[in-house]
Design a protein around this nucleic acid. Structure first.
Lengths: 139, 139
DNA sequence: TCCCTAATTAGAATAATTCTAATCTATTGA
DNA sequence: TCAATAGATTAGAATTATTCTAATTAGGGA
């Protein structure tokens, strides 16, 4: 076992300026090997533990924030009590089921926001987020 | 001091099915005597203490949630770490400055959201929230 | 290889919120 | 009017979510 690790996750981390440590590689594998995902620190940590990766919850938080700063993830604000992270970093919006915390994407082209008023003097728009809160129909 | 309290705040609470207790009257006064406001539990508690109202932070949280359930307030989700409450309960949207937590309203008519995709099968739309994240222009 | 430096990890501390036991208040009946 | 009862309310304690920082680990040059 001499060669440097050089799989996709490792390369992705390297290019983001983050050392491909054991913990980060494992978390990146869970996050990026597959389709788009939405996670919280808690769900990702539980998943890591479930696959026998030894990593603390604090490290999961650190990694999620580092990945976000590096542009590999995007934070989604839909719940005042919990931070969600999305592996889809393209501009898009969300459906959110408050009852169970389920999140799903709406492609940017799927919603049109028009007639936005000018932002307050001295400020500029950074991003426009649309959250469609939905609930399961009773029955 | 015999007559029952019967000012505006008291009446508002009574109609919401909430006892007009000393704590609730004081908080309602701070919230509703004036124009529209945005508060967090922390800012409202600080304000109450500043006006010599003895009330615990937990009670402020309770009151904010009770007022929200009664339709006197509306929760605004713009920050994953902190709950904001808005005295403007009409349908509308928000500008949010992440750096300092400043919130301001955008009248419902000020934004148009069109071409919304149908929500996932078995669900119905409860509310559509638009958050325009802005930042102070550097300088 | 060893040392130096800087990045990284995770236990401890903090911040935000909720829970629940104790307290208070309104109402009823005597 | 007064006491007893039931239900609502308050706030200290507990929990949950997140961040901080000291100790550890790892990379790169001599």
């Amino acid at each position: 076992m001499t060669g440097r690790p050089s799989n996709a996750a490792s390369e992705r981390l390297r290019q983001a300026g983050l050392r491909p440590t054991r913990q980060r590689l494992a978390l990146a594998g869970l996050l990026f090997d597959g389709g788009d995902r939405h996670v919280t620190a808690e769900t990702l940590h539980r998943e890591a533990i479930g696959t026998h990766v030894r990593v603390s919850l604090a490290t999961v938080y650190n990694a999620l924030h580092q990945f976000t700063k590096a542009g590999l993830l995007r934070e989604v604000v839909v719940d005042a009590g919990r931070a969600y992270f999305d592996t889809n970093t393209r501009h898009h919006h969300h459906f959110f089921v408050e009852h169970d915390g389920a999140l799903s994407d709406i492609a940017a082209g799927g919603v049109e926001v028009s007639r936005l008023p000018a932002p307050p003097a001295g400020t500029e728009v950074e991003r426009v987020d649309v959250v469609v809160r939905i609930r399961r129909r009773q029955g």
